[in-house]
Design a protein around this nucleic acid. Structure first.
Lengths: 190, 190
DNA sequence: GTCTATACCCGGATAGAC
DNA sequence: GTCTATCCGGGTATAGAC
């Protein structure tokens, strides 16, 4: 069974997910344990299993919420040409990742439990990306790979200390925007 | 203390690292436990601590070896122009990731324990990337982000089932190669 | 020096009583 | 719906046998 959207969750389940989310955002994935979630709610860990199937389902609920919030963040993406659209997408993407680093990691840095997610949330978050890429699926995947790579490598502290990440983002956006423009030109010809 | 290079490792430590590497490559990070490593060597887990400080040091030894192998793989990278050099880099990078998925994840999908690594291995693996990017550090980081994003998203099964990943790689390489060419042109002017 | 046995703490999860 | 008791597996420290 797929995880319910927030509105369909029972009061108790919503409280559990909220407590779990707080633990995750404050202390990362290691801080998110069933025992700790229970402790935060003043109950024992086994009691949680009367409301949720287990930890994977709890994580999936958090991930579903994350995708919904990401899609909402993208709603504010605007821009005249491919260049500005891609740049705006990049700013929002990076902003989400750096604002919710542990949540972002949970959402992206592992295989996605698609069967447990609320239906449609992944697609809703992906759509603005495809649009920013001018409708070309291959290019959209290249853009996503770039954006995810920049975001996750920054979160993990993998870039050198003095690295100018704004400049790296700009270099990638510039390169990919030129491709979007070319793809559009080819499309007009056909 | 930094992890020793393979040649400086004692026989016993080398055997332990080899057993750990096998477990990792065969069963992923969850399969890599101190108990299992010991079992594979016919001893008990606590005995390992006479040879190694702990699991983080064992992982660091595996990671150091991985970087050395990655640097060696890049040695075969050749190409006439920026386009072909970047394409060759991408092929080798993707090949390494798909040939050793669990090792690649251990090396890249988490913060890097730099203090425990054998000195110089990270830089040796990074150098060919900077060269492929034409010497521009910002562009090199954009290239790395793209390559890592493509590799890790493929390993984690995050792209749609029918996605043409060869085409996505090509789109990104084409876009970034054009930037490398432009950077070179600007450099000649100055 | 190298290994063993034992033990502690943490984690996910289940069974069954109230 | 919550409890207690319990199991399993993991990393790790200590004590002591050989």
């Amino acid at each position: 069974m797929a995880s319910s959207a927030p509105e369909e969750r029972s009061q108790r389940v919503a409280e559990i997910v909220a407590a779990a989310r707080t633990l995750l955002e404050e202390g990362g994935a290691e801080a998110l344990s069933m025992r700790r979630v229970a402790e935060r709610l003043g109950i024992r860990a086994p009691s949680l299993y009367k409301h949720l199937a287990g930890k994977p389902e709890l994580e999936a609920a958090i991930i579903s919420d994350g995708f919904a919030e990401l899609a909402q963040a993208f709603a504010g993406a605007a821009g005249e040409g491919p260049r500005e659209r891609l740049a705006a997408f990049g700013r929002l993407y990076r902003g989400f990742a750096t604002s919710h680093p542990h949540l972002y990691r949970l959402m992206t840095a592992r295989p996605l439990p698609r069967e447990r997610l609320a239906p449609g949330v992944e697609e809703a978050a992906a759509r603005p990306l495809v649009e920013a890429a001018g409708g070309d699926g291959d290019l959209a995947r290249a853009v996503w790979a770039f954006a995810h790579g920049m975001a996750i490598l920054e979160l993990d502290g993998r870039f050198p200390p003095g690295a100018d990440l704004d400049a790296a983002w700009e270099a990638g956006v510039t390169a990919l925007a030129a491709q979007v423009r070319e793809h559009r030109a080819r499309r007009r010809q056909a």
